[in-house]
């Protein structure tokens, strides 16, 4: 990789990791959601680096737009239910950290041990290629996904509606 690539990648990686840490450590829930937003946008940057433009756009739209909004609303609504401010003391920090390090360690070891060739020489898939795949090879999962989304919508409404008079 060229020096510029390395710099760019390092920058993005730094932002992502910083944002991730902020998400899990921040005591204020709203701030945590915002840290997550930062992380997700930086992730879109990684997708761009990996030549997945459509995916990057989708990432920003869905996550930074949809999920973050959803999360903010949820935080506000649950705050109202609770009445008090959102408390966020965490417990079992050491155990969690150890488990996280264990997971990470194993994954890293696996990655480093794997024989990975360089990136393929073929050009990355275009949107047309993606569309053709959706309508061709992955038609069934695509349709099922739409059904699933409907189901999830109905379920979410049913679960979250107020039942008391």
């Amino acid at each position: 990789m060229s020096g510029l690539e390395v710099l760019g990648l390092s920058l993005l990686a730094g932002v992502i990791l910083l944002g991730a840490l902020g998400t899990v450590i921040s005591k204020d829930l709203v701030r945590a959601v915002l840290w997550l937003a930062l992380t997700l946008v930086a992730t879109a940057g990684i997708y761009l680096k990996l030549l997945a433009g459509f995916l990057a756009g989708t990432q920003v739209l869905l996550y930074a737009g949809g999920v973050i909004t959803l999360a903010i609303f949820a935080v506000m609504l649950s705050q109202r239910v609770e009445g008090a401010g959102v408390r966020q003391e965490s417990r079992g920090l050491v155990v969690g950290a150890l488990a996280a390090i264990a997971v990470g360690g194993v994954l890293v070891a696996g990655i480093l041990a794997a024989p990975l060739a360089a990136a393929a020489a073929v050009p990355p898939p275009s949107v047309t290629d993606l569309a053709a795949s959706f309508m061709g090879e992955f038609l069934l999962p695509f349709e099922v996904l739409s059904v699933l989304l409907v189901a999830v919508m109905v379920a979410a409404i049913t679960i979250a509606r107020r039942t008391d008079p």
């Binding site: 991730a20 417990r91 996280a100 990470g104 994954l107």
Partner: peptide, 17 residues
Amino acid sequence: MFSIGVYGVLTRRNAIG
């Protein structure tokens, strides 16, 4: 990123967290 997420799952008390 995954391990940081693991840490968060194991440590956070609030469900949204």
